[in-house]
Design a binder for these strands. Structure first.
Lengths: 129, 129
DNA sequence: CAAGATTGAGAGTTCAATCTTC
DNA sequence: GAAGATTGAACTCTCAATCTTG
């Protein structure tokens, strides 16, 4: 079990390093990815829900993304309580660069595992619910 | 790959919850475990090295452990630059309780994986270097 | 009162800079 | 100068409390 956790950490470090090369962190990339995928601005609550974190976290994360110029806050016209995050052109460019880096790591990961082991891995992950 | 990372996170959450039941966090437990294993006080640098983190991290972690009464700072008699962390009786008790909780999670994990899959898992983890 | 977002405090982490001691 | 520890700033995350709006 500890080996599994250790390997997962090493993998995350690799992902962080890959994203770091384009000036992103994993949380920042996740937000940009959701915004690109949605195609439209998303409310902070919606983002928090999709990334499985609390709303106050998203407030600060969007603060930093806004400071980076990758996202913009826009008031929701239909609900004045709500604030939406809109990706900037710069944000879209950065997200694409991040996705490319992540794809490289994923490719490397796939190549390091045999078909047989991949089947066993999927079985295990399903069993861990 | 993402499934693997997700499963690892779920496992860590389970460990955090188990340790939380005895009033510990994973980092705090790791420090106590090292101190119990060593049998003697360890310098903060030695602890940082063993837990693969930066020294400034250990400074703050030991601050919190000291506030909890689980660890005590003692000046090193041979090197006046150095500060050692000494586990308290309360700390030793807490560490034992934590170890028991971790063992439960580990047992559950073992039971959820077949012998065949375990072999595949070990093979994969070795391949990920 | 519910649901949106925010703020403040705290845990954990890193880095850069500093201070003391070797 | 190099190695101990510490401090301050930044990032990520959580929780509790607050404020505004539905």
């Amino acid at each position: 079990m500890m080996s599994l956790l250790h390997a997962a950490h090493a993998l995350e470090d690799k992902l962080d390093a890959a994203l770091g090369r384009v000036g992103l962190s994993a949380p920042k990339f996740s937000v940009l990815k959701e915004l690109v995928g949605a195609g439209d601005p998303l409310s902070l609550s919606e983002l928090a829900s999709r990334l499985a974190c609390v709303r106050s976290n998203m407030t600060q994360l969007v603060d930093r993304l806004e400071a980076d110029g990758l996202v913009r806050r826009v008031d929701c016209p239909t609900d004045r309580r709500s604030v939406k995050a809109e990706i900037t052109p710069e944000g879209a460019t950065r997200q694409a660069a991040g996705a490319s880096e992540v794809a490289k790591v994923e490719q490397e990961f796939r190549e390091s595992i045999s078909a047989i082991d991949r089947a066993a891995l999927n079985r295990m992950l399903a069993g861990l619910e």
